[in-house]
Write a protein that binds this DNA or RNA. Structure first.
Lengths: 211, 211
DNA sequence: TAGATTGTTAATCGATTAACAATC
DNA sequence: TAGATTGTTAATCGATTAACAATC
């Protein structure tokens, strides 16, 4: 009845951004022995409106059961599937500075199926060292490494000055999606997906709210 | 004419979040010798619609000059004032783990007037050490330190399990605004401002866009 | 059964975009 | 002057919230 192919309507980005917090709340309930969870319960846990959560969960395509809510395991799967987190995503990281080292060792990511397998830098002093059990490799080796591992996602944590060039090297080496922590706006082919996380935006919001 | 007191209409949060990127673009132009900047130019630089930038700049209260745009220096001041970045904000950081160490040493923040002056942790091994020229102090010392320095903002980078307790200790010690990098939802008195930055939201967005 | 929760359609709200007169 | 840019009012768009019948 649904026309042709995988034309599931796109899930709004605000919903997508809330999904990880839903997953955390649901997994916490699961850990405490629950097998069912309702939108209202998640909403209360996260201090969101229950209608909002209900709508967001509806976007996963999973059907709930009036009065009971959703069975926990299928719900986790459905959300993870919507996020593309079905199977762990391997990624490389470029830029072994402060932020890069932190993200390479940040345990929180593994919870979301993000696995950083190697770190690249062009500082001869760093190359060959390890960060949190991950090798630091020369940027020259990136293309080879990506071809061998089929990795397509990269985290970019170099300085703003170095960001554009590093990003070009990543794309050249085969990266298709970049999580950009540098403040620089990257100029790249349109088939490359760039997701910028700007830490200063959060600080701006906090500063303003505190005035 | 404007009624009573400081009732300037609140600036929308999406605009606030864009301000830091405007500042970067404007300062870059200033560094290249410009003295005037138009909304259209900033928009082109950041790939935003010019009407959006124009509206955002209007919220600062600064008046532009048709055909010329805005004088750069007053515009920088006006944006920084809107953000509460007039004078550098000192802050403490709680949690000397990976992410905490990175943020304590992240040079990018000083650009926005955020200065982390001390790091707190309760690990006896870490206490007494330095991270990027900042001392790691015992959490017991926090109250004293805040009273002496009048600092009211804190960055929270402990594990999710430790977050609620650490946040309570911060509030107890006098912190009024918390930038929370832990994934935990904090339960605190309503006069305390909590700004959460959830790194997994950005990753969720990237994963989905790459599918 | 009664009550809670779902799924869905309609109403509201706020942000972005469009249109346009004013002005340098 | 002509043209670019501002400030402002109106239109659009999308997300959130409200309302409510269906159902377990």
């Amino acid at each position: 009845m649904s026309g042709s192919g995988n034309l599931e309507k796109a899930i709004p980005l605000p919903s997508i951004r809330r999904y990880p917090s839903y997953l955390r709340a649901i997994k916490k309930l699961k850990a405490s022995g629950e097998e069912w969870v309702s939108a209202s319960l998640i909403a209360k846990e996260l201090e969101l409106s229950s209608i909002l959560v209900r709508k967001d969960l509806a976007c996963t395509g999973l059907e709930g059961r009036p009065k009971y809510g959703f069975e926990i395991n299928p719900l986790i799967s459905a959300i993870e599937h919507s996020l593309g987190w079905d199977n762990a995503t391997d990624a490389i990281l470029v830029g072994a500075g402060n932020l890069g080292s932190a993200l390479a060792g940040y345990n929180g990511f593994s919870q979301y199926g993000l696995q950083i397998t190697a770190v690249f830098d062009n500082d001869p002093v760093k190359i060959g060292q390890m960060i949190h059990e991950k090798p630091i490799l020369s940027i020259d080796k990136m293309k080879d490494y990506l071809e061998r591992t089929k990795i397509a996602m990269g985290v970019l944590t170099v300085s703003p000055q170095a960001a554009q060039k590093a990003a070009e090297q990543m794309v050249e080496a085969g990266i298709k999606g970049i999580w950009n922590f540098a403040t620089t706006k990257l100029d790249l082919p349109s088939n490359v997906i760039v997701q910028r996380t700007d830490l200063s935006a959060g600080f701006a919001e906090l500063s303003t709210r505190m005035r």
